[in-house]
């Protein structure tokens, strides 16, 4: 097939394969493309910064959430924990109380023995006199 416009010479006396008009258009297009790519890249950067910031916030939120859950659990178990602690302490109190009761009873019996012996001594002394 025959080429419509073969090689042309433009106004600046340079040899052109493309017609002058087309060349100017394509050059224009290339420029606008370039600016578009630049804009897109800029946009991408902006998005990236934004998403990383969001990510950071999300992480923090997530951590806080976990902490909250943990604390909520701790709160929930605290009641039980305290109950257990209380039971433990109550058991110990009962234990000590039982021991105290034993000792008090022993002391009572000993003081009774002392009383009886005093009474006996009194009796003996009064008899002697």
């Amino acid at each position: 097939m025959q080429v419509e416009h073969p090689v042309t010479i433009d106004e600046e006396h340079q040899i052109r394969i493309l017609p002058v008009q087309k060349f100017a258009d394509s050059q224009k297009l290339a420029n606008s493309c370039k600016s578009f790519v630049e804009k897109i890249t800029q946009f991408e950067e902006g998005i990236e910064a934004y998403s990383s910031a969001i990510e950071k916030i999300a992480q923090r939120t997530e951590a806080e959430k976990l902490k909250a859950i943990g604390q909520r659990n701790m709160l929930a178990s605290e009641a039980e924990n305290r109950l257990r602690k209380k039971q433990e302490l109550e058991a110990q109190i009962a234990q000590r109380q039982a021991e105290l009761d034993r000792l008090v009873a022993e002391a009572d019996s000993l003081s009774k023995v002392e009383q009886e012996q005093q009474a006996l001594i009194q009796k003996l002394v009064s008899m002697e006199v």
Partner: peptide, 20 residues
């Protein structure tokens, strides 16, 4: 003049004075 008895139910030690 004393005897010492331990109760079985709660382990209380009791001293009993006996005539000499």
């Amino acid at each position: 003049h004393r005897a010492c008895v331990r109760r079985n139910s709660d382990g209380v030690v009791q001293w009993i004075s006996l005539p000499p």
